[in-house]
Deep mutational scan, measured.
Amino acid sequence: QGDIVVALYPYDGIHPDDLSFKKGEKMKVLEEHGEWWKAKSLLTKKEGFIPSNYVAKLN
């Protein structure tokens, strides 16, 4: 089961498979690959890669 993270900063995706998000948006982490994680937005239901240093895990 994936962790839920919250965006600390907004992110505008650079690549087509990036997931753009707004500050405060919550996402479910699907896979962790070093600095880039695959996640699904709980708001938009879209999936893509996010920079892990832009988010914090919720406990």
Rank of each mutant, 00 (worst) to 15 (best):
Y54P: 01
F21A: 01
P51E: 03
P10H: 13
L8I: 09
H33L: 11
Y11M: 03
S41Q: 03
P16I: 09
H33R: 11
D17I: 07
I14D: 08
I50P: 01
A39P: 00
F21N: 01
D12R: 14
P16K: 11
Q1D: 12
M27Q: 00
K46N: 09
K57H: 10
W37L: 15
I4Y: 09
K40E: 09
G24D: 06
Y9S: 06
D18K: 09
K57M: 09
Y9R: 14
I50C: 03
I50F: 06
K40V: 14
W36F: 10
S41A: 04
D12F: 13
L30M: 09
G24M: 04
G48N: 01
N53T: 12
E47K: 08
I4P: 02
K22F: 07
Y11C: 05
S52N: 08
M27C: 03
K28T: 10
A56P: 02
K26C: 14
K23Q: 10
Y9G: 05
K45H: 15
A56L: 12
E32K: 15
K57W: 13
K46D: 07
V5C: 12
G13H: 04
V6K: 05
H33C: 14
K46M: 11
H33I: 10
I4E: 05
H33Y: 12
V6F: 09
Q1W: 14
P10D: 15
H15Q: 09
I4M: 07
D12K: 14
L58E: 08
A56D: 06
D18H: 15
D17V: 06
K22S: 10
K26R: 13
P16Q: 10
K57G: 07
L8G: 02
L8T: 04
E47W: 06
Y54N: 04
K38M: 13
D3G: 11
K26D: 02
K40T: 08
S20K: 07
E47F: 07
K46A: 09
E32Q: 14
V55G: 02
L30K: 03
D12Y: 13
K38P: 02
I50D: 01
T44S: 09
E31L: 08
K46L: 11
H15I: 05
D3I: 15
L42A: 03
E47Y: 07
L8D: 02
P16A: 10
S20F: 04
E31C: 13
N59A: 12
P16R: 08
N59P: 13
E31M: 09
W37I: 13
K38G: 02
V5R: 02
L42C: 14
P51M: 05
K23V: 11
E47L: 08
G13V: 04
S20L: 04
Y54T: 04
K57P: 12
L43R: 12
E25K: 00
K26Y: 15
D17E: 12
T44N: 06
K23T: 08
L42D: 03
A56S: 11
D3F: 15
S52M: 11
G48Q: 01
D18C: 13
L42F: 08
H33K: 11
W36P: 04
H33A: 09
G48E: 00
W36Y: 11
N59F: 11
F49A: 05
I14N: 09
G48C: 02
Q1K: 14
A39M: 05
M27T: 00
D3L: 15
E25Y: 02
L30A: 03
G24K: 03
M27S: 00
L19E: 01
L19G: 00
K40A: 09
E35V: 13
E32T: 13
K57Q: 08
E47H: 07
G48F: 01
V29I: 15
L42G: 01
L8F: 04
L42W: 04
S52F: 09
N53L: 09
A39L: 06
V5N: 01
G2Y: 13
V29Q: 02
L30E: 04
V55C: 08
S20P: 08
W36Q: 07
V6S: 04
E31D: 09
N59L: 12
G24V: 00
A7V: 02
K22M: 11
D17Q: 13
V55Q: 01
L8P: 00
K26F: 15
A39E: 00
T44Y: 03
K57A: 09
I14P: 07
P51W: 04
F49W: 15
E25W: 04
V29P: 02
V55W: 02
N53D: 10
Q1Y: 13
D17W: 15
S20D: 05
L43I: 10
F21H: 00
E31K: 08
V5M: 05
Y54S: 05
H33Q: 09
F49M: 14
V6I: 14
P51I: 03
D3T: 15
Q1G: 12
L30R: 03
K46T: 06
H15P: 11
N53F: 09
H15C: 14
E35I: 13
E32F: 14
S41Y: 02
K26S: 07
L58A: 08
S20C: 08
K40S: 08
E47T: 13
K23P: 06
A39G: 05
S41M: 05
A56R: 14
G24W: 07
